[in-house]
Amino acid sequence: MSDSRPDVSLLRPYLLTAGRAKPVDDTLEIEAQVMSSSLGAAAHSDLAFERREIIALCRKTMSVAEIAASLKLHIGVARVLVADLAELGYVVLRRPGATPAQDLSMIERVIRGLEAIR
């Protein structure tokens, strides 16, 4: 591997540390839930603009897509910033299951939830 270029990949090592084995070309799901941690709240004033906004915004749990929309960021940018914050422990993530379309109890649960809508 004689790659002389500096590391310019948008993919950060968070993928390897997120707690489950992921292929390296994977990225954070747009529906992944993001919640600021107390560590993030404590570091809030030291952070740069967008990261600080994400910490403030995610006192209320929301998805990566909602963060992107709220801060008018390209979704790819929101994704990288959230991943960075997660790596630092400033936000807590909840990612979707690996194969939700095969998860019968989850599908039933969503069906019940929708049926309750009037």
Partner: peptide, 15 residues
């Protein structure tokens, strides 16, 4: 910093 309304963890997202 007690935060009474904060859930223990975020909800599971599906789409």
């Amino acid at each position: 910093k007690p935060s009474a309304e904060r859930p223990q963890r975020p909800p599971a997202p599906v789409k």
